[in-house]
Write a protein that binds this DNA or RNA. Structure first.
Lengths: 148, 148
DNA sequence: TCATATGGTCAAGCGGCTTGACCATATTGC
DNA sequence: GCAATATGGTCAAGCCGCTTGACCATATGA
C-alpha cells in the first residue's frame, strides 16, 4: 500500500474517531450530565470495572499522577465517583464509580450506540461487526487515551 | 447491537486512533522534525492541497481563528509554511506549505505507512483495504480534528 | 455610499497539564 | 529487624494552548 493511501486511511480513521468522541460527549451532555469532557469518559472507562487508583488512572490516560488526581477530585466533587481506602495498601485510595457515575456510563453507552446505529445504516450490521473485529485485532488491549 | 457492544467497538476505535496518532507523531519526530504536535499534523493536512486561510484552518481544526493564527505563526516561524497575499481578497492571507513543510508531510505519510503495514501483518492487505473503505463510507469528508 | 459581514491581529485571562518538592506507607536487601 | 529505596498521594508554582473581547482593514450588498 502506498504511503499516500496509508495516510488517507489514517485520515479517515482519525476523522471517524474525532466525530465519535464528539458525538458521545454531546450525547452524554444531552442526557443531563453537563460539564463533562471526553477525558472524563476515558477515566470512567478505566474506573468502571473494579475501580482504580489515581496512579493507575494516570498510566491509562497517559498523564502525570498529579493531573489524574486532579481529574479524580473533579469527578468526586461532581458525585460521579468516591475515594475509598485501598484494601491491602494503606497508601493508596481506590476510586470507584458511584451510582451516578454508573448512570453516566450508561448514558455514554447509549450515545455510542446511537452513533454506531448510524454506521449500521450505511454499512449494514454485519460489516459493522467486521469493522469491530478488525479494530479489535489491531489494538486488543490498548489504553483508550486522548492522544492529541 | 447492544449498547455495551457499541461502547466496546467505540473503545477499540479510539484506542486504535490514539495509538495511530501517537505513532505518526513519533515517526515524524524520529525523522528529524521535532517540536511538532499532532495538532500541527492536522493543520498540514488542511494546508497541503492548495493552502488555506487562517480562518479556514480554524474551522477545520474546530478552534478559534486566534488559536489557528497562533498555530500558523508557529509553523511559519519553524519554516514549514509561509503567508502569501491572498489572490482576490486583500484582507486574507493564504498560508501554504514550504518545501520543508512538504518534506514533513511526506515524513508523516511514511510514518503512517509503517503503522498500517503493521495492521496488514495482522489482518492482511485486503482486510486493511476493506477497513479503509468502511471508514471512508462512514466519514467521507469529516474534518480531521483533535476532538478531545 | 453607508451598513454590515468577514479575515486578521493584539491583549488579557483561564484551565489543564507539567515539574519539583514533600509526606506516608510498602518493599527489598542486608 | 532495620535501614535504604520504591511507590501512592498531595501541595505549590508555572507553562502553554486556547478562549473571550476589542479592534482594524477590506468585502459585500441594500
Amino acid at each position: 500500500m502506498q504511503n499516500s493511501e496509508a495516510m488517507a486511511l489514517s485520515a479517515s480513521l482519525l476523522a471517524v474517531a474525532g466525530e465519535l468522541t464528539q458525538r458521545i460527549n454531546e450525547g452524554v451532555v444531552a442526557r443531563g450530565f453537563d460539564g463533562l469532557r471526553p477525558a472524563h469518559g476515558f477515566a470512567f472507562a478505566r474506573l468502571a470495572p473494579d475501580g482504580a487508583t489515581a496512579t493507575e488512572l494516570a498510566a491509562h490516560l497517559g498523564v502525570t499522577k498529579q493531573a489524574a488526581s486532579q481529574l479524580v477530585d473533579e469527578i468526586v466533587r461532581r458525585g460521579f465517583a468516591e475515594r475509598r481506602p485501598h484494601p491491602g495498601d494503606a497508601r493508596a485510595r481506590l476510586v470507584v464509580l458511584t451510582e451516578r457515575g454508573w448512570a453516566c456510563t450508561r448514558a455514554a453507552e447509549e450515545a455510542a450506540a446511537e452513533v454506531v446505529r448510524g454506521w449500521a445504516d450505511v454499512l449494514g450490521e454485519s460489516e459493522v461487526r467486521a469493522l469491530w473485529e478488525q479494530l479489535w485485532r489491531i489494538a486488543p488491549y490498548g489504553p483508550v487515551r486522548p492522544a492529541w
